[in-house]
Simulated scan of single mutants.
Amino acid sequence: MLEIGKAIVSFDVLEEHFLCDLTKCKGACCVEGDSGAPLTNEEAVKLEKIYPIVEEYMTPEGKAVIAHQGSSMVDSDGDTVTPLVNNRECAYTFKDKRGIVKCAIEKAFFDGKIDFRKPVSCHLFPIRITEYKRFDAVNYQELKICKPGRVCGIGQKLPLYHFLKEPLIRKYGEKWYEQLEYAAKEKPWQQISE
Rank of each mutant, 00 (worst) to 15 (best):
I50L: 05
E16H: 11
E16Y: 13
P38K: 04
L124K: 04
R117P: 00
K63Q: 05
L47G: 00
P38T: 05
K24V: 13
C152H: 02
P159T: 00
V13E: 00
G5T: 14
N86D: 15
P83K: 00
D34M: 09
F110V: 13
N139E: 11
N139Y: 03
A28P: 02
G112W: 09
L124A: 05
D111R: 08
H162G: 05
F18W: 10
R128C: 05
A44P: 06
F110A: 07
E61Y: 08
G149V: 04
K171R: 15
A28W: 01
D21G: 06
K185H: 11
P60V: 09
C20E: 07
C103K: 01
I129W: 08
L19Y: 10
G78P: 07
I192T: 10
E186K: 04
G112S: 09
D115H: 12
Q69N: 13
V9K: 01
R98A: 15
A183S: 06
P119H: 10
K187E: 14
E32P: 01
E131M: 06
Y172K: 13
A28Q: 08
L143C: 07
S76L: 11
I129E: 07
A184T: 11
K185G: 00
K157G: 05
K107I: 09
P52F: 02
Y172D: 12
D75E: 13
A67M: 12
K157Q: 14
E15K: 08
A67V: 10
I114E: 01
G149N: 04
I66V: 15
S72C: 11
I4N: 01
P119V: 11
R88C: 10
G36H: 00
S71K: 03
T23Y: 11
V13G: 01
V151R: 10
R150W: 05
N139A: 09
S76T: 13
M73D: 03
G27S: 08
K102E: 03
D111Y: 05
Y177M: 12
S35A: 13
E142T: 07
I192W: 11
E43W: 03
C146Y: 05
K175I: 14
I129H: 10
E61N: 12
G62P: 00
K97E: 15
V31M: 07
G78M: 09
Y172H: 10
N41G: 07
V85Y: 00
I4M: 05
E106V: 10
G153L: 01
R98H: 15
C30A: 04
D111N: 12
